[in-house]
Nucleic acid binder design. Structure first.
Length: 318
RNA sequence: GGAGGGGUGGCCGAGCGGUCAAUGGCAGCAGACUGUAAAUCUGCCGGACUUUGUCCUACGAAGGUUCAAAUCCUUCCCCCUCCA
């Protein structure tokens, strides 16, 4: 029923606690799929509970890939992920399985679905150099340099936007070419030979918050504090992405006795809700889904979702 | 019972006669997003309008002083600390 030689990839997006993973698992069981992680934090081999990675039982019920594949001190990037994801998608197709890409990291999904403008990798030395400039000479030094070197990007970026300004500067320092110029080149575009079918879960904020609070309690019971303690014991450099996992700073502060656990929990829940809002805004404005479901995933949605997938067609059975 | 210190917008908390609808922070709402994105950043945030402005309601309550009060005075209510 699939046409030509295009092979279907199911993409499942939505904010945290919207039920993406459960949906992916249900679809994987129904259609013989492999779940491919598109969540920047679940990529790491740390905090499996706090980052809501699939459980052993989930992994047993269907193949799951790209979970816990990076070391805690690794620095993953969107482009790295795209490469890994494409390999896994190919592998799944080769095995006759439906790849189901699922995750809440909008940028990663975009990287897969639309690609990024081609750009060389930035040497670590230059990255640290640029960060030192910010830390030692202040944001205005970075700003001044950026205005001189890439006025287009400077005009676009707010002076307080540390991450993007540093990125822009490091690209120039490494390549001698402004980031704005690199970005003008056409993005790689969607991967050839694949048909992407996307589902977006979009529950209302109140539902999400209730889900987040309930889930956080379960995470604590499952041992979230212990894994936080173990990660902190590694004493990683402060710039490692995994240290930015929502809930980590709050629980770490409780472990250090700076705040009490109740306080840490309520702050972590709030922070997660704020994260969900950012995701929601991203998906609402930056993501075009083939099917949008305006509720948290549940059994009730199965018919609609499964028939959508069937309509789209599964992997070409050549 | 006595001596002090307080009660400020959803919360915390500054202000202590005019430039105060009231600094900050938190929460909330909205938004941006091309390689560390669970990141980073921006705007709004008493109410109503004709929204770089006007009006109304506001700083525990009620009175009072003053051209003018969240800010001063009086009484009352409530909270906290210390002494009994």
């Amino acid at each position: 029923m699939a046409s030509g030689c295009d092979r279907t990839v199911l993409v499942v997006a939505g904010p945290t606690a919207s039920g993406k993973s459960a949906l992916a698992l249900a679809a994987a069981q129904e259609f013989g799929g492999t779940v491919v992680n598109a969540d920047s934090m679940q990529l790491y081999d740390a905090l499996p509970i706090l980052t809501a990675q699939p459980t052993k039982a989930d992994r047993k019920a269907a193949p799951h890939v790209l979970y816990g594949v990076l070391r805690p001190d690794d620095v993953g990037t969107a482009q790295d992920w795209r490469g890994m994801a494409l390999r896994e998608i190919e592998g799944a197709h080769a095995a006759g399985r439906l790849p189901i890409v699922v995750g809440g990291t909008g940028l990663y999904l975009r990287t897969l679905m639309s690609g990024l403008a081609p750009m060389p990798e930035i040497p670590a030395g230059i990255r640290t150099k640029v960060r030192l400039l910010w830390d030692e000479q202040g944001s205005s030094a970075v700003r001044a340099r950026l205005e001189q070197v890439d006025p287009n990007i400077a005009a676009r970026l707010k002076p307080g936007d540390r991450q993007r300004q540093l990125r822009a500067l490091e690209v120039f320092e490494a390549t001698g070419r402004p980031l704005s110029l690199w970005q003008q080149e056409a993005a790689e575009g969607p991967p050839p030979g694949l048909r992407l079918a996307s589902i977006l879960l979009q529950p209302d904020r109140t539902t999400l918050r209730a889900g987040i609070a309930a889930r956080f309690g379960a995470m604590l019971e499952a041992g979230a504090l212990a894994e936080v303690e173990a990660l902190m014991a590694l004493d990683l450099p402060g710039d490692r992405p995994i240290l930015r996992a929502v809930g980590l700073p709050q629980l770490a502060a409780a472990l250090r006795q700076e705040i009490d656990l109740d306080q840490a929990v309520s702050r972590a829940i709030i922070a997660t809700g704020q994260y969900a809002k950012r995701q929601d805004t991203w998906f609402r404005h930056q993501f075009i889904a083939d099917l949008t479901i305006r509720s948290q995933f549940s059994e009730k949605n199965l018919d609609e979702i499964f028939s959508f997938i069937r309509r789209f067609g599964l992997t070409d059975p050549d």
